[in-house]
Amino acid sequence: MITVGDKEIEWHEGMTIRDMLNMLEHTQFCAAVRLNGKLVSSPFFETKEIPDKSVIYLLPLIAGG
């Protein structure tokens, strides 16, 4: 299992950030996430694999300074 915000999601081997986002609703404006505290930006969503038991938070739209 992985935790995304306040939700728990079934984990599978090779699961990417994009796979995870596809399992959620209203994620079209997600440009970056925190994966176990580390930033991952959208250009890496297709390739970044999620380890089991990860804790993930979706970041805001990225609103600038």
Binding site: R34, L39, S41, P43, L59
Partner: peptide, 21 residues
């Protein structure tokens, strides 16, 4: 603490995000 962590890092979280994009 879950999102930008500005209380810890200010606005420096934007550096890697801007770079990646």
């Amino acid at each position: 603490p879950k999102q930008n962590r500005m209380a810890l890092v200010g606005t420096t979280h934007l550096v890697p995000i801007m770079n990646d994009h």
